[in-house]
Simulated assay, not measured.
Amino acid sequence: MENTIDLEEPITAAKCSENLSSVEDAIYVIGGKWKLKIIIVLQESGSIRFNELQRNIRGISARVLSNELKDLELNGFVKRVVHAEQTPVVVEYISTDYSRTLKNVIIALSDWGKMHKRNIRTEAFLSQ
């Protein structure tokens, strides 16, 4: 299955470099094993406490989750809300409006992942 892309303008070395730089920046911020998983769970949950978030993301340690949440907060994807008026103090995490700008990217990645899995299964079946 071959896909062709109709380009509106020819790709120059400068444009290629700009695209690579932009993708590199995006991957730096949301890349890795856990960040997109955290963003997706937060978007689907609304607000969620740390332990519940950890239970929803199988395999992530508390230390890694804490570090990833700090990174996501620094980059504007997550907001940490402390309810100090309660005893014990309750801390919740919510996705920001900026985080929701990734919705189309997440949907596109999900669709591509499903297509890729089908292709791999089909190729594995055909090679038998």
Rank of each mutant, 00 (worst) to 15 (best):
L20K: 06
M115Q: 13
F50P: 03
F50Q: 13
A14T: 14
S47N: 08
R58S: 14
P88V: 03
Y93V: 01
E24D: 11
V105A: 08
E2K: 15
K103W: 02
Y28R: 14
S21R: 07
N56L: 06
Q128W: 05
F50W: 09
A124M: 11
R100D: 10
L102T: 12
K114Q: 09
N119S: 13
E18P: 00
R121C: 10
N3L: 12
E44I: 02
A26Q: 08
S66R: 08
R100T: 14
I60A: 06
K70Q: 06
S21V: 04
L72Y: 07
A62H: 11
I40W: 02
E73K: 00
D6H: 11
A26S: 08
E123D: 04
D97S: 11
E44M: 08
G46T: 05
S127R: 15
Q128G: 14
V105F: 11
L72F: 02
L36E: 00
N75I: 00
M1R: 08
T101S: 07
Y28M: 11
E24W: 06
A14G: 02
G76N: 06
E68Q: 11
R63M: 09
D6F: 10
R118W: 09
T122P: 00
R63V: 11
S21Q: 10
I40N: 12
L126I: 01
V91K: 01
A14V: 13
N75M: 04
R100E: 14
I40V: 12
R49E: 12
N104F: 07
E8W: 05
S110F: 09
A14K: 07
P88R: 15
E8I: 15
R49Y: 02
L69R: 14
I57G: 14
T122K: 00
T4G: 01
L69D: 14
K79N: 12
L69V: 12
L102F: 11
L20H: 03
E2T: 06
L20W: 12
G31R: 05
I48R: 00
S21G: 04
L126P: 00
G31L: 02
Q54G: 06
D25T: 15
S66T: 07
C16R: 04
I39F: 02
